[in-house]
Nucleic acid binder design. Structure first.
Lengths: 301, 301
DNA sequence: ACCTGAACACCGTTCAAGT
DNA sequence: ACCTGAACACCGTTCAAGT
């Protein structure tokens, strides 16, 4: 048989978590060539549960350069491993954003050439998947064995903790859409979500619908909020100052004069609140709205 | 006075829509150097309303190469303008995705060099903002002057049409978070959203919270759905086949055996439905949940 | 007024080679 | 086993120059 045209350069394999070798230390794997995109992405949230091997502290502190045994210039060691690479990736993504994150930049931070990284991961996407799952390790999952707990409280806790992750790590949002999210920490989170939804009293169809309502809302909210927080920080001003400047800039445009009463009214109704307070209040209200909505749909049969 | 250090290469100016010259044909503008990020990004949705100059049909058909008067090799004309560039950008973004969209690729499609484009826009970001607003021209806005209309129907219509845009153009989602969204079409949409929220009977604070609940949900839902649709298309298989393959690939992994009953149960409960049907049902249920939630919060005072 | 060529400072990734 | 240098095929953008 003639060699099958070799299709594209890289055989499709949609997730680091679907590698040949199980626990994944180093070593370029044999790339099982599996297709796929998870049910999570079809319905809005991942399937089962899993155990998590912790990747050390994902959010380190020193943002200088290579910490520890750097290899200098020539040949060997350098003390790399997936966990360290992942941790430094998270730090870099937090500090400089997804757009500026590159294999070369990361390698420099680790005191190594870009090509060294390819011993530990197959692609940049693999690295981002690892970073993504690492920050899902930050979610606080409620005690699911507590039979007496109110599902409303558990749902609120999951929503709040998911929002916090999205805001702390603005780069997470685009990746959630991009990958399977079947890493160990992601699985713990989505298993918790499903368990809690199971306690609402809704039927199976209602559960998936309500799950989408709640967590797609949190995803959207946290995404926009994270962007805003990051932009203000990059501009070196407070969120309130940033907000004020933006409103001013838009208001100055003659194009917008006519259509600006709504925003002005909103501005006026602030009553001295900060944008952070306004956002928190919106989030809290929306969450109560969703809980009330679940109850209403349940009572409706 | 000495020249003020010249900060970065490009003075900050956060939106094409905040250019010096109003209607924006060609000509590198004088870059007013304004700061800002809109209130929309703080609260989740833009401010006022606006009128829209239509950029021709944003979604053209011929996906070959330069349509019409191409300049060949040497000097002049080429028949470029912002509307044509925007329309071709949308076509290219739809066909090949945000990741593959480049100034050079677009220029080739227009039969021109990349540098020509910089006569019409200052940056790639400007171009993406124009494309983004162009597809917001696809939203169907309900008749807001109809006093007898039910706000529930109008809210559903806006949600459905926003979802459709996000799914048809998967590249829209990351851009919504990135830019101000103060283009004419975006403004029409958000003004409609605010008008309809004003009819729910909620107080001002409730309105912004409920607005976030509904439209951040739609944003999240449409984002994930758009990704899934695009991935299936790229893989050249139906959505159902794609879903099946993904489940199979994950299920094969021993790591996931233990944690897979939940997903299996979900799989079994499908009863022969397609993933598209499941998604539509989830969306519809979530939307009714949100409407019921708004009513409950309103009656709660 | 509108378009181009060459150049700068980047990318992700492959491959053959070093130790 | 782990790391590197050189190279390939790309990026966005600037600048001086063409017509």
């Amino acid at each position: 048989m003639a060699p099958e045209a070799d299709r594209t350069k890289r055989p499709t394999r949609t997730s680091v978590w679907l590698e040949g070798k199980p626990a994944g230390r180093g070593r370029r794997s044999e790339r099982p060539d599996r297709p796929g995109q998870s049910p999570s992405s079809a319905t809005g949230q991942p399937p089962g549960s899993a155990t998590g091997r912790s990747p050390g502290s994902a959010t380190g502190q020193s943002a200088g350069s290579s910490t520890g045994q750097s290899a200098g210039q020539s040949g060997q060691p350098a003390g790399l491993d997936r966990d360290r690479i992942t941790a430094v990736s998270v730090r870099l993504l937090d500090a400089e954003g997804l757009a500026k994150f590159s294999m070369r930049r990361l390698a420099a931070e680790l005191g190594v050439t870009a090509m060294s990284l390819y011993w530990y991961v197959d692609t940049k996407d693999d690295l981002l998947e690892l970073a993504l799952d690492a920050v899902f390790g930050e979610v606080r999952v409620p005690d699911l064995t507590d039979e007496s707990a109110d599902w409303r409280d558990q749902l609120r806790e999951l929503a709040v903790t998911y929002r916090a992750v999205l805001v702390r790590h603005a780069w997470v949002s685009p990746l959630v859409g991009r990958y399977l999210n079947i890493g160990p920490h992601s699985m713990v989170f989505s298993a918790a979500v499903q368990t809690v939804m199971g306690r609402t009293g809704l039927g199976p169809h209602g559960q998936t619908g309500a799950l989408a309502a709640v967590f797609q809302f949190v995803y959207g909210f946290g995404t926009i909020e994270g962007h805003f927080v990051q932009r203000s920080a990059e501009a070196g001003v407070s969120q309130d100052e940033y907000y004020r400047q933006a409103m001013g800039a838009i208001g100055e445009q003659p194009r917008f004069r006519a259509s600006f009463e709504g925003a002005d009214a909103l501005m006026a109704s602030r009553d001295g609140d900060t944008v952070a307070q306004m956002r928190d209040r919106d989030f809290a209200f929306a969450l109560e709205l969703l809980v009330a909505g679940i109850e209403a749909m349940r009572d409706r049969g």
